[in-house]
């Protein structure tokens, strides 16, 4: 058993950008972060649903192929937009206060 290193936890907390960063100087980035966060949430939900359907054998190979292509394109587009707005995957996991992290 090990005791929790509080100092280490605080340092991690200080370096975590888990809130939307919107102010008058970076409103574009703040909005992009919000929009991309929502898209990422939806993408994960759709992907999870697709996984459950594959697991239950309720998708044909053709349907899996089509879904795969859609997710691949979405993935590429997301990476492109994240590059443009200098966002990382961690930036899309915003903190919802008492509800915890979004993802």
């Amino acid at each position: 058993m090990k005791d929790l290193d509080i100092k280490e936890e605080i340092e991690k907390l200080q370096t975590t950008k888990n809130r939307l960063e919107a102010n008058k100087d970076n409103v574009d980035k703040g909005l992009a972060q919000l929009v991309l966060t929502l898209i990422e949430l939806l993408r994960r939900l759709m992907e999870k649903q697709a996984m459950n359907r594959i697991e239950n054998n309720s998708l044909s190979e053709q349907e899996i192929e089509e879904l795969g292509l859609t997710f691949m394109k979405l993935d590429e587009k997301m990476k492109e937009l994240m590059d443009i707005f200098e966002l990382t995957e961690d930036d899309l996991n915003i903190n919802l206060g008492p509800l915890g992290d979004l993802m």
């Binding site: 992907e47 899996i64 997710f71 691949m72």
Partner: peptide
């Protein structure tokens, strides 16, 4: 991943 199918199988 070379195509949609293998992409999905990798994810699965």
């Amino acid at each position: 991943e070379s195509n949609g199918y293998s992409y999905m199988i990798k994810k699965f």
